[in-house]
Amino acid sequence: MHLVFPAVLAALLFCVGLYGVLARRNAVLMLMSVELMLNAVNLNLVAFDVWLRDTLHSGQALTLFTITVAAAEIGLGLAIVLLIFRNRGTADIDRVGRLTDGDEKADDDEKPGDQKADDEEMEGVG
């Protein structure tokens, strides 16, 4: 098989993921785009491992490690997103701007009673 096919597919997939990370507003959708980018890297690793016939199988071993790290990453990332949602009532990246420099407007649309009501509502569900 021509090596260009998997390499070009991986490059295009990486760029699609890059677009998703930059353009999406929802935090969960951003994490999905990060998964796409990691998968592009995995495809590259597998293709080059099969091409070079490495005796240590380092490409495929690294792919397994990347998959594991990606699983840990999405678990922790979703836990953080859920925590933000529980505290702020939104999962929008644009509206989580408390640490930004000087731009106080990001916090304006957060209503004062929002968090408490949200917490109680979630308590009822759980």
Partner: peptide
């Protein structure tokens, strides 16, 4: 309707430039 943020066109430009370079 607000799934994409306002910097979508900038993101598209960055992604297209990266794709052209890498490919």
């Amino acid at each position: 309707p607000d799934a994409d943020s306002g910097n979508r066109w900038l993101a598209l430009g960055v992604a297209l430039a990266a794709a052209a370079t890498l490919v």
